[in-house]
Design a binder for these strands. Structure first.
Lengths: 343, 343
DNA sequence: GTGAAAGCGCTAACAA
DNA sequence: TTGTTAGCGCTTTCAC
């Protein structure tokens, strides 16, 4: 079917040996002091025959694929697609390609993706784990394959990561709510066992405790980072009796917040007059909402780039097993109009 | 560094021939009537040695990579990241991986990506071209590599595509504006030579002409699908003298619309009381904006899935050169609150 | 039922 | 300055 123009085709056509052609095509012409005439002839013939190098053969030979694996829970989430964009750009600049895998927040799929990337001899792997299990990730590292976690990580497990200072971000956000007089603050959380969620909820709790406000378990609801989760639990929270009414909501993710807003809209509850809202994750559309949202921003510091920096460092050092440092990038509270000061 | 457990390792350990092991591992045990004892032994040993198949070697041998290439202009645009999600899911279900490339709306990068995918023996390629050039795409098809365009296509060029009925969508949107009394409608366009843009602008023009409204060149502005483009040109449009004031804007893309909204907000122009707006591309946050946006939706029909259907069909038929049909998925006008009826 | 061996396209050590 | 050759890990035809 596909006519195969190989190095050998080019060499045969020219009556040269294929290694000569290989050298020229790899830019080693000068190094091997191959005559200018030969070099030109080779290049012309390659062009003429429409030669396309075969990366698969090259990878097999070199035992590296010039490919970086990227595993994210949901590529359609702007937070992750922005990371993907950064990673892809930077990879390309450095001569790497990216193999994209979407785990759909499912550990099994994540494991399969990780296995796949190994099958493909990925030179390095960046993964935003679902956050539930880590053994398969540790095993990758043990095999000497460079690996960096993003967004979520595991405490006390020696896997390098780049994430956000979720704890501080959440603390700051809730301190801000409290400063504005809020005491009954609901927290809609994401996937319970993920570091991102744990840290954000802990920040929330710490803020309340700092001000002598009881942390009420019934005000911490939800179980994943989805629109549905935000929508559903907002509906639930809103149904509570008036005397226990919450005055503010702290949402731990952008998709959740969208669900919250949708539910509030349906219930005809206004922000911030009826209810205040602070959300994790910023995006440029959030300031254009019917109430511009006060958010904890962490888009500005680029997680993807930092992760790649570390990954390349590990790949260069060739002792992948040694690295285990984590980086927490700072957050920033972007104050807009979704919080009302109450007495 | 990386210890290599190969089929040979497993075979040697068992005193078997590597071809036997290969057969077992590929599930051909029964076909070759290999004894159950041997099969079990092989599986156990593979497990024990932690054998990981090498897809690179496999691909080289089989001359296919089980990989689909996906080239998009901007993965951080929700429209494309949603497509990527669909494509990835469906690929995985069918045993394919995806190699993701981001062209950044740059033809050169697009060409490089396409070349790269060929180097990697991608079994098929899905590309949302920048829309300016097509020769490199035709050449891919000529080589017998299955290729399907999405989102944008080339008229009279025999490349199969899956896109949206942009013309109808734009026509309907502008008919709606006109029905609401608007006559001075500005159109903020995307990349001028792309099919998506051409069709959308044509739909806009046709609607005006249908109602005897002059198409004014100065009301068709802009040059790409970015936030910046929408922002900048809205600022410009707004500065025009009062007597020529536009009453409505038709935006040809979601990112553009975000820019429009940002600019209007800064200029303190209210939607729809001061200005009406209809936008191409729907998304769930658009109904949550300070004015829920009336949009031309085409998210619901999944371009990615349809494109993969066609791609798989071509791949199966093994005569990639024959296919050149295009599919235009329907759009839907989602009426919200961003258009005011004027006299 | 299992083994031997060729070869996918490429690189690089060694040879000349 | 160019050629020879081994081998990366795998599949598959042919042989027994």
């Amino acid at each position: 079917m596909r006519k195969n123009v190989t190095i050998k085709s080019v060499a045969d056509e020219l009556g040269l040996n294929l290694s000569t052609v290989s050298r020229v095509l790899n830019g080693y012409g000068e190094k091997y002091r191959i005559s200018v005439k030969t070099i030109e002839a080779v290049n012309q013939m390659a062009e003429k025959l429409n030669y396309v190098p075969n990366n698969i053969a090259k990878s097999l030979r070199l035992k590296r694929s010039s490919t970086i694996g990227l595993v994210v829970p949901d590529i359609s989430n702007p937070w992750f697609s922005t990371i993907a964009l950064e990673v892809e750009k930077k990879c390309r600049k450095n001569g790497y390609n990216i193999l994209l895998c979407n785990s759909g927040e499912d550990v099994k799929t994540e494991k399969r993706s990780i296995a796949l990337l190994q099958n493909w001899m990925a030179d390095g792997i960046i993964v935003a784990p679902t956050g539930i299990e880590y053994k398969h990730l540790v095993s990758v590292k043990k095999k000497g394959i460079p690996l960096v976690l993003i967004d979520r990580f595991f405490e006390n497990i020696e896997l390098p990561f780049v994430s956000t200072n979720d704890y501080n971000g959440a603390l700051e956000a809730n301190e801000y709510l409290i400063k504005n007089g809020h005491k009954r603050i609901a927290c809609i959380q994401g996937i319970v066992n993920t570091s991102a969620n744990i840290q954000r909820v802990n920040g929330y709790k710490r803020a309340l405790m700092n001000h002598g406000i009881d942390v009420l378990p019934e005000l911490i609801v939800g179980s994943d980072f989805s629109f549905q989760n935000g929508y559903h639990h907002t509906k639930q929270l809103v149904k509570k009796s008036a005397k226990n009414k919450i005055t503010a909501v702290f949402s731990t993710g952008n998709q959740i917040s969208l669900g919250v807003l949708k539910a509030l809209k349906e219930e005809n509850i206004k922000i911030p007059s009826d209810l205040s809202l602070v959300s994790f994750d910023d995006h440029n559309y959030l300031e254009l909402l019917y109430t511009p949202l006060t958010t904890v921003s962490h888009m500005n510091e680029s997680v993807g780039q930092k992760a790649l920096d570390i990954l390349f460092e590990i790949m260069a050092d060739n002792n992948a097993k040694e690295y285990s440092d984590g980086y927490l990038l700072p957050t920033q509270l972007v104050i807009r109009e979704s919080v009302k000061a109450i007495s």
